[in-house]
Amino acid sequence: MSQQDESNNAYWSANVRLILISLAIWALVSFGFGIILRPALSGIAVGGTDLGFWFAQQGSIIIFLILIFFYAWRMNKLDREHGVDEE
């Protein structure tokens, strides 16, 4: 295996790791806090209702936004570190 191939493999596994972490957060805020874990969070009051309702109608959208920009920023950095960015 050439050096470039090895570097490309390292790049790809770093990418996959980043994707898995991001998707775990993605699922936690929407399916977790917004739906399945809502009863467990019902003690935390937010403006006339509970935290789960806030995550379902607002919170998850905000987290999604942060996630995409974080991923784009991190990946563009990773591209340069592994020398696979577009010249």
């Binding site: 379902a56 998850s60 959208i61 999604f64 996630l67 995409i68």
Partner: peptide
């Protein structure tokens, strides 16, 4: 709300 925004992730 969650479905039509979460898809962008």
């Amino acid at each position: 709300l969650m479905g039509w925004t979460g898809g962008y992730v």
